[in-house]
Design a protein around this nucleic acid. Structure first.
Length: 278
DNA sequence: AACCAAATCAACCGCTATGAG
DNA sequence: CCTCATAGCGGTTGATTTGGT
């Protein structure tokens, strides 16, 4: 027998999410967290596949997401990181708090790539275009970004031209050290959010300061500052939800972001574990 | 005002890695 | 060790928006 598909394709809705669906998903995740995405839509009353829910959450609904265009500094950082890591968007996103891999990928393809081309820089190799046509190094047949980022010659060729002016030294240093598997900036070392931001958020979320993503395992969300709730959140009026338990239920005790899965901690919260759990 | 093309971005698809049984 | 379920990742698609003629 083949494996069970991630979602039964029949009766599964696709396409853009509606505000109502967003509300259901956010409401569910904020009160219960997620155990396995596969069952989230069922429990949340959504006709979506779990994968779709996860994507919607990580790319759009997560409370710690920044919205809007990348700042110049973020852009430079992306360019710099891309020079080192290649198309490993999730790794890049992990170093830009509040940004998603999808967002960065899109921004790269629509803005940065063109900008680099206009500047005469090959967005793939990060070399000047007039140099780029040079034959690839014989040892490397497939010039995969992966390979470019290999420890052998991590930065030498990229740095000089990709942005001679500002190279964000601290990021450089961090990147150099943690080239391999990029745990990079541990959550607790992520630059602390300005207090004002935190307080504004907490006021927006009914006075709870611990607005963190329930999907604590998410790479891009580790202990990241809560910036703004995406519009849908405002629309929903999350106050009730926050009051209901998110803020107080999962205290960010060690300051390092969530350390406990809500499901582990409150297995029975809100619904009968025995019934619906598959 | 209407049409068309380009740009943008949310969402989907398919593959891989990882962990549990 | 093998099989399977799940999560996560990167590439791609398609709907929508914007700008130009």
């Amino acid at each position: 027998m083949g494996r069970q598909p991630c979602c039964d394709k029949v009766g599964v809705k696709k396409g853009p999410w509606t505000a109502e669906e967003d509300q259901k998903l956010v409401g569910f995740l904020l009160t219960h967290g997620h155990c396995c995405w596969r069952i989230v839509p069922k429990l949340a009353g959504l006709l979506r596949c779990g994968k779709s829910c996860r994507l919607r959450w990580t790319n759009y609904l997560r409370p710690d997401l920044k919205r809007g265009l990348l700042s110049d500094e973020e852009e430079r950082l992306v360019i710099d990181l891309h020079a080192q890591l290649g198309n490993r968007w999730s790794k890049i996103a992990a170093r830009l708090p509040g940004r998603t891999d999808n967002e960065i990928k899109n921004h790269w393809n629509t803005h940065i790539r063109k900008k680099l081309l206009r500047m005469g820089i090959d967005p793939v190799t990060h070399l000047p275009l007039h140099k780029a046509p040079a034959p690839p190094p014989p040892s490397v047949q497939q010039q995969e970004p992966e390979q470019q980022a290999e420890p052998q010659e991590p930065q030498e060729q990229q740095q000089p031209q990709n942005d001679g002016d500002e190279v964000l030294p601290q990021v450089e240093a961090a990147a150099e050290e943690q080239d391999k598997d990029v745990p990079l900036i541990p959550p607790h070392e992520v630059p602390a959010p300005p207090p004002a931001a935190a307080s504004s958020v907490s006021s927006a979320s009914a006075g709870s300061a611990s607005v963190v993503s329930p999907s604590c395992s998410s790479a891009a969300s580790g202990g990241v500052e809560a910036t703004e709730w995406p519009e849908p959140m405002y629309l929903f009026g999350m106050d009730g939800i926050m009051d209901a338990g998110w803020g107080g239920l999962f205290p960010d005790a060690d300051g390092g972001g969530m350390s406990l899965d809500p499901f582990d901690q409150y297995p029975g919260a809100g619904f009968d574990q025995g019934d619906d759990w598959i």
